[in-house]
Amino acid sequence: MSRSIALLICLVGGLTMLVSPFLPMATGWANDVTDWFNILAAMAFVLGGGSLLKVQLMRLSARGPGWGYSAVTLLAFAVTLWVGLGKVGVVADPSAPMVPWSGKPDDEGSAFWWIYLYVMTPITSTLFAVLAFYVASAAFRAFRAKNLEATLLLATAFVILLGRTFAGVVLTGWLPDWASGLRLENLAVTIMDVFNTAGNRAIIIGIALGVASTGIRLLLGLDRSYLGGDA
């Protein structure tokens, strides 16, 4: 019975979204279905938080390798949640100065704002920046011209790497106008414009066809894998 209801919800929701671009009267229904999705997504946040707690607490209690990271994760989770929900340090909104909680949790001066500015921003920026070091090391060790395909890939990478900087102008800027297509910066544009676009469009069209066929299977109840188990 519960599976039938789930299949029915899927069918009604899917069909509503499918017909809304063609039926003006169904536009509002489609927007309502999107609201349902947002409500479900909000519930998923709670599930996600519960799952994080469960996994990290199990790792912590087992004292397995890296249990210290779990402790840090749990501490960061708890502190951020408490600071955000409790509106710690929030400055009252000018429209209601007597109500200490009237400001937004991420307003300047609040503890949440402080965590964002002095913890999250530096950490995420640093993690992204560190990639440059790993990419350099990996390129040195793994990028080999072992065959024709790898050599072509290597040559393309060189053109893009040089063409996307001032090096392209320095190295090939002297080429006359009739050969300007061979300047590195123009070659980089040609690679993106022709070869990359052709390949990507083929992939996008293939994915779209796959999504359409999967969607039909879901709507018709032929694919029930999203229900879990052996459904």
Partner: peptide
């Protein structure tokens, strides 16, 4: 970015 890219190319050439 320029010098990072040039270093990357130099490392790939050296590795090969």
């Amino acid at each position: 970015q320029l010098f990072g890219h040039v270093l990357l190319i130099a490392l790939i050439v050296l590795g090969n």
